[in-house]
Each structure stands twice: as C-alpha cells, then as structure tokens.
C-alpha cells in the first residue's frame, strides 16, 4: 500500500475506496478499502465471483454507483485529479471522454429503436457540440473499420447485428472519444468462445494502437491470467491478493486464489484433479467476523476468526490479505 507513493504519478490511483449499498435490511459493504494504481497502456484484471464487488468497483471509477449505493470513503485520482470531487459537468466529461465503459450485455446496452449511427452521433455531439452530424458519422465509420465491421453496417439497427458485432459496436462507442482508460465489465461473458477470443484480441490490438489502459473485470481467472499485466483478486468486497499476473501464477499465495486456480479446468493439462472450495460466498449483510474467507479456508487459525488480516506486502509487487504470510516480510 506504500507503492502508491511512487515517484512518477500514475494514470489512475485509487486509495482506500469503500462503497456501501444502504438497503432496507441493512448496510452492505460491497467494496471495502480497495487501493490500486494503473499506468498508461497497462491491463489490470479484476477477478471475483458474483457479489465480490468487482462491478461496483468498476462503476465507482466513473462515479456511477447505482442507488442506493454510495461511495463512503476513499479517493480516485485520475491524472492527479479527484474524480469524486468533480462537478456535474466535469463528471459527464469524465465518462466517455476520459474513462469509458463496456458493459456485459451488448443486447441491452444499445437502443433497439435507433440506428447504430445515431448512437455515435449522439455520443460525439454531446461531448463536442461543435461537431456536425456528418463529421460524427465519418468518425463512426473509421471506428467501425477499427473494430472490424463493414462501415456501411452503421445504418443497421442493433437487432440486425450478431452478438459479437454488437459487442464490437460497444467497443467502438467506448473508443469514440479517445479515452485514456477503458473499463470492460465481463465484455465476453455473453459470447461464444471463438467470438470471445476475437473480442479480447481486438481489445489488445486497439490498446496497442491507441495506448489506452484497460481494466478487465471478469469472473474468469483464465482470461485475466492470459490477458492482463496485473491482477486484483476480490472476495466479498475486499482485495485478497494483488500482483502481476506472472507473479500471481508462479506464486499464488491467498488460499482463495489458490482454491480458484485449483477449481478451474485447464484444457492444456492431460490429467487434472480439480478440488473445489468448500462452502459458499458469504452474505454481505452478515459477513463473518475477522477474515471474510475463514469459513471456507482450509488453513484457518484462531486469529482469522477474530481480526481481519491487513494486506501484507510479501514482495514489491505482491500483496496478500492473509495471516499465513505474517512472517514473510516483518519488520
């Protein structure tokens, strides 16, 4: 957590972010004390199961946590500027122009009664009132070429495109204002495996071409291990492990990350014995005391049930929230 005070400022620095949903039955801490940084051109993978807080984290970054959620603590610094302190106009400018979002379901993210090109015209002219309709369309056509769709398909309605093409349109929309960060929240979960590989390859190509940073939010550990530079593993609203993907793979420390890795089938292994993580994720209305993972942890100790472990730094790029590594880098 000290690595946030590096010499050169990061593109994005998130410090101690905490987000709560104030439901009728009580308060749910969906994201708690999350800190990380992101540099230009980097890919950060955020992996976790449903309810781990990964999507809430993504939405917080563009200050778009849905009601009844609110950001109760923390700072989000984008190029040194606190995103949470921006006014209404500036926040609108932030969304789309500086950070853009690709949602999971391309079927529901496009307006079914509008042609694709009006999506682009509306987006571009909202942010750049001086742009003419013709200019916006020309730019949209260029973006279509970038994402690999015939430019003349721009006059189609969303229902005329396949699922994979709609997700390409979503990516084109996300890139329209040349943002410095693209957040892709389960961008390929609704898609078949061949289309999924194509979309992920496309994101990588565009990232290399335009130099934007990418935050890839997914439940699929295989995808983040394969596609990101560094990884955050989330469990019940908490970061439980944070490392570069090669470090995380070579030295998986947290029992939850280890469990995930042992429970997903790997097609390249000839024989594989999968071991499941026992139990199920906690109810965040009544989270367990101490470490949130202890009821499912094979290495649980007495202290885990009483006090939540802090994020321990086991090496310069490796953080883990687990008492097993207390001795690793004490003093």
């Amino acid at each position: 957590m000290s690595d946030e005070d590096g010499e050169k400022p990061h593109l994005l620095t998130v410090n101690n972010l905490t987000v709560e949903y104030w439901a009728r039955r009580g308060k749910i801490r969906a994201v708690e004390d999350v800190s990380f940084s992101l540099d230009k051109g980097e890919t950060l993978g955020v992996v976790g199961e449903s309810g781990s807080g990964k999507s809430t984290l993504g939405l917080s970054l563009i200050h778009l946590v849905p009601y009844p959620g609110r950001i109760v603590n923390g700072t989000i610094l984008l190029e040194g500027q606190d995103v949470l302190k921006l006014g209404k106009e500036k926040t609108r400018d932030l969304r789309g122009r500086r950070i853009s979002y690709v949602f999971q379901d391309p079927m529901t993210s496009l307006n079914p009664v509008e042609r694709i090109d009006s999506h682009f015209v509306e987006l571009i002219r909202t942010h750049e009132p001086k742009a003419t309709k013709a200019e916006a369309t020309t730019r949209a056509k260029k973006l279509f070429k970038d994402v690999g769709i015939q430019p003349d398909r721009i006059n189609d309605y969303p229902h005329q495109l396949s699922g994979g093409m709609r997700q390409r349109v979503m990516i084109a929309l996300a890139l329209a204002l040349d943002p410095s960060i693209v957040i892709a929240d389960e961008p390929t979960t609704a898609l078949d495996v061949i289309v999924q590989a194509k979309i992920l390859d496309l994101l990588k190509t565009l990232q290399d071409r335009y130099g934007m940073a990418l935050i890839l939010i997914t439940h699929d550990l295989s995808i983040v291990l394969e596609r990101s530079d560094k990884i955050i593993v989330m469990y019940a609203g908490r970061i439980v492990e944070r490392a570069s993907s090669s470090t995380l793979y070579a030295q998986t420390l947290h029992p939850y990350s280890q469990g995930l890795l042992k429970s997903i089938p790997n097609i390249e292994l000839a024989e594989q014995k999968l071991t499941a993580i026992g139990g199920s994720p906690p109810d965040l209305l009544h989270p367990p005391t101490g470490c949130r993972f202890w009821p499912r942890c094979p290495y649980v100790m007495e202290i885990c049930k009483i006090k939540e472990p802090p994020l321990l730094e086991t090496s310069s790029d490796h953080l883990v929230r687990c008492y097993l590594y207390r001795g690793e880098k004490a003093s």
Binding site: I194, A197, L225, E226, I264, I267, E268
Partner: peptide, 17 residues
C-alpha cells in the same frame, strides 16, 4: 479452432489462435 480459442489459466502461454 474451438480448442485454440479457449483461455488457459497461464500467463506464460503463447497463444496460437
């Protein structure tokens, strides 16, 4: 093609899609 498209949980793996 189907098999080459499957993500593998290994950052070291070279993708030959």
């Amino acid at each position: 093609a189907l098999m080459s498209a499957i993500p593998v949980p290994n950052p070291e793996r070279k993708r030959t899609a």
